[in-house]
């Protein structure tokens, strides 16, 4: 049977701007993936717990408040702690270019900034998930 790619789309932090997250969720659905949407204000603990129960291939995080340097690495670390470091973590939102290398060094596989076509995000996930 054809294995479906499963992606958790989550909004860590407190900002309520979920337009991007929802658009990406729909776009991934239209790319044939199963998207689990968790809604706003998710703590890293909640996100990781959901990612494990849902056995996802990828966690896609969206944040617009500027708290990415704090929250993205926390999700990566917690996944590692729970033995789920084979889950691909990608991020998006209003994230200054200069912050990206730091996030990548801390284990965020890719950061998609405003203007990235959703097809590019879907393609990246398809090609980079660690479990085939």
């Amino acid at each position: 049977m054809d294995r479906k790619i499963r992606v958790l789309v989550a909004k860590p932090g407190l900002d309520g701007h979920d337009r991007g997250a929802k658009v990406v969720a729909r776009a991934l659905r239209d790319a044939g993936m199963e998207v689990i949407y968790t809604g706003l204000r998710q703590t890293p603990e909640q996100i990781v717990s959901a990612a494990i129960q849902e056995d996802v291939d990828c966690v896609a995080l969206s944040i617009l408040s500027g708290a990415h340097n704090h929250l993205f690495p926390k999700v990566v670390d917690l996944l590692k702690e729970k033995g789920a470091d084979d889950v691909l973590v990608v991020g998006g939102g209003v994230i200054p270019d200069e912050d990206i290398p730091g996030l990548v060094a801390k284990g965020v596989a890719a950061v998609f900034t405003p203007g990235t076509p959703t097809t590019k995000t879907a393609e990246y996930i398809r090609e980079n998930i660690k479990r085939k």
């Binding site: 991934l28 659905r29 809604g39």
Partner: peptide
């Protein structure tokens, strides 16, 4: 439901159950 056209799905029920995550 899974979309019959793309085979994908947005599964959103978890939104209301997230507090059980801990």
């Amino acid at each position: 439901p899974t979309s019959p056209f793309t085979g994908g799905a947005v599964l959103g029920d978890r939104v209301r159950m997230q507090r059980h995550n801990a």
